[in-house]
Amino acid sequence: MPSIHALANPRRFLSIARPLTPLLVWGGLALFLFGCWAGLTRTPADYLQGESVRILYVHVPAAWLGMGGWSSLAIASIVYLVWRHPLAAVAARAIALPGAVFAGICLATGSIWGRPTWGTWWQWDGRLTSMLLLFFVYLAYLALARADAERDGDGRIPALFGIAGTALLPVIRYSVLWWYTLHQGPSITLTKSTIDPSILWPLGFTAGGASLLFGGIVLMRMRADLARIKAEARMRRRAAA
């Protein structure tokens, strides 16, 4: 049963998370919508792709957050396994659903972009297939975490699965560099971008906004999960009394 130490930390977490949630959600939504508006009306079309280039303002943040989501899920899983901190398990569970949604958005927008650009909705190339696998791995994690919670598991099996799933991240990253793929190589790396600045700039707003939104959703889900745990503990105490 939760020790004083374990209870104290969620309480401190809640006192920070409660005021932070609306800031992240509304701030993120505002940035994201501004970026979308700018991307639709304030940037030129691409010389080859035409207007369909504008999908990148949603597709690229979704891809980053789909992968970044799994990275943070894996870090939370490691923190849980090493320090046995219950809040880390709550965080990993909370990340999985928005991570899956962003991976799904990435796949859907990519498919819509692929039809006019490549001439196909879907091809089994290295990048597309590995991203689809990440989406399925998210769904598997969600099912596993739920099954573990229903059987009063300690969350160790989902945490191990979270670490194992990191295997996909280098595949997604390097598939376009090491394998022949239909998907193009990275346009944006840490040091350079091959997207003209006049097209690129709204991406900062949509990517930043979507990241804040992601954080806000994770905090909301963590708070809901903590409330559920608290309510269940109270029910158990009442039943015992």
Binding site: W118, Q123, P186, S187, I195
Partner: peptide
């Protein structure tokens, strides 16, 4: 299938 490269520009 057309393969697009990583360069985007007006």
């Amino acid at each position: 299938l057309a393969k697009h490269d990583e360069r985007y520009m007006p």
